[in-house]
Design a protein around this nucleic acid. Structure first.
Length: 153
DNA sequence: GCCAACGTTGGC
DNA sequence: GCCAACGTTGGC
C-alpha cells in the first residue's frame, strides 16, 4: 500500500466535482515522472491526498484512492484535445493514467498549515521549486495528515 | 551528449 | 502580474 498527493486546479476539477462524480479518470498528465508513478507504482486501493493548486487557497481538500490500474490516456489521440500528442499512437501510447475514487471531502488543510508542521517538513510537495503534480507521501506523513483532518480508518 | 532558449508551474 | 524553478526542445 502506497500513498500519494495529486494536484488539481479547482477551476479545472475540484474536490466537489469528485464528490459529485465519485470516480474520475486522471487524464491530462504530461510529465514523465508523474506518468511513471501512475503507470509503474500505483496500485488499486492506494491512498490519495487531493490537493487544490493554483487557486486562492492551495491545500489538501480531501482524501481519495486509486481506483484502477493505469491505462492509456485517450486525450493523447484526440486532435481536438488540448492534451493531444501527435507523437502518440494507439499502438504506441505515450501517456497513461489511473482512475481516482473519492473517499471523503475534508476540511481544507492550507499549504501554510502544512508548512507549519515539522512532521511534514520533508514532504516533496513542500520542497522549493517542486512542480510535480503527483508525489509520493510517506506512511507517517499520511497518518499524521489524516489525524489532523479528523479522518479515521 | 551538451546546453541555451523556451515554456510551464504555481505560490505569492 | 511577477518570478523562481524546473522540464523539454533542438541546434550543434
Amino acid at each position: 500500500m502506497r500513498y500519494w498527493l495529486m494536484k488539481s486546479e479547482p477551476s479545472e476539477y475540484s474536490i466537489d466535482d469528485l464528490v459529485r462524480d465519485g470516480v474520475v479518470p486522471w487524464f491530462g498528465v504530461r510529465n514523465y515522472q508523474a506518468r511513471n508513478f501512475m503507470r509503474d507504482q500505483m496500485r488499486v486501493g492506494d491512498g490519495v491526498l487531493f490537493y487544490h493548486s493554483s487557486c486562492p487557497e492551495p491545500g489538501i481538500a480531501g482524501v481519495a484512492e486509486v481506483a484502477t490500474a493505469a491505462y492509456p490516456d485517450a486525450t493523447q489521440f484526440d486532435p481536438a484535445s488540448k492534451y493531444y500528442d501527435p507523437k502518440a499512437t494507439p499502438e504506441r501510447p505515450r501517456w497513461y493514467h489511473v482512475d481516482v475514487r473519492i473517499r471523503q471531502k475534508t476540511r481544507l488543510m492550507p499549504l501554510a498549515e502544512m508548512r507549519g508542521y515539522p512532521e511534514l517538513a520533508n514532504m516533496r510537495v513542500l520542497a522549493r521549486g517542486n512542480r510535480l503534480s503527483i508525489t509520493p507521501v510517506d506512511p507517517d506523513e499520511w497518518r499524521f495528515i489524516l489525524a489532523r483532518l479528523g479522518v479515521t480508518g
